[in-house]
Design a protein around this nucleic acid. Sequence first.
DNA 1: ACAATTAAATACCAGTCGGTAACAAAAATG
DNA 2: CATTTTTGTTACCGACTGGTATTTAATTGT
Lengths: 186, 186
Amino acid sequence: MNNDDVLGVAMAAYWQGDPADVSVNAITQMAGISKPSLYREFGSEDGLKLAVLDRYAEQVLSDMFVILHGGKGLRETLDALIDFASDDPRMDTGCLFYKMRAGKHRLGPLTRARVDEIDAAGQAAYAAFLQSCLDAGDGIGGLPVAAGARYLGEQIALAITQRASGEDKARIREMLTLALSVFTRP
Amino acid sequence: MNNDDVLGVAMAAYWQGDPADVSVNAITQMAGISKPSLYREFGSEDGLKLAVLDRYAEQVLSDMFVILHGGKGLRETLDALIDFASDDPRMDTGCLFYKMRAGKHRLGPLTRARVDEIDAAGQAAYAAFLQSCLDAGDGIGGLPVAAGARYLGEQIALAITQRASGEDKARIREMLTLALSVFTRP
DNA sequence: ACAATTAAATACCAGTCGGTAACAAAAATG
DNA sequence: CATTTTTGTTACCGACTGGTATTTAATTGT
């Protein structure tokens, strides 16, 4: 059981439940390693969560950035975001990043700082996407880019968070589609 | 320091922070009473939280039901909801009910059941409001009542939750107004 | 083969959690 | 006044938390 395997186990555990409800003891047990081994590798619980978050960003969140930077048009990109948020099986138990962001006050300083970084990067990506739509001549419902980016980000987060609470996929899609319809209004 | 005072202290503590992060020890300390006194009165942490939630529903949530059952028109009622969610000073630290609902898995069975009850009552109130708008001849953006009620409830919850994380009031109002504009679309 | 070094595990630390048993003061009841 | 019953307190319980000091096992260098 090498370090990457441990990271995988920890990510699965944090992702499946609530990061704040999974103890280091539980992780060492699931990974079949001793506690000092884990602490030697990651330094602290904060260090472990940071490593997990980085791995998650690179393995999962990257897909969302790919959608946003795909250079497709407004409708096509929004549809891809809706598909991802309401149907991707990886989001069945929610998004680890959003879970961490929702419980930010329970995180250590390292992980919290990284959450803020990723959040800012997300905002920037949403804004860049909307700006590119404007540049391409697509209207975005007459909204300012910054406000639209915040709105878009929060609606996606809301939809994925509802996935974690077992809400029906079709209903989530319905609500998200409705929320994002403000961008494609005549 | 009588029982109602203790309930007030507990409600303030739970409301201010996260209900899951406030221990019974902390509450007894803040209220200046001993732990067995609190347990004799409320039975368990679950019982205390249930009592707090009931008090909160009667003191705060009732105002939202009053708005919904006020018999006013669509636009006026939505505006009142937007005002409440984005400007009412009592929502500066968020809504205790939504905080409990978000951390439902951390609640005891009594409180969790009550959260579900209140949630269902909220859904019903939103649906009744939208139905009354339809009956009065107001269109609600061509949405089915049930879907609209879910959407409306979640958008209000999102807005108030953002209040708790210190988001700017004006931006929250902007986003909520945008989200609810789907109801008043021509 | 033996010594030095590294890796991993056992066992422990102080602190907090929700919850209670045992006990002291006070108030109601005979 | 004496007795019971309620009210409140101190001190404790076992279980868990994040984090480590210490010891044992495996590996390496010579």
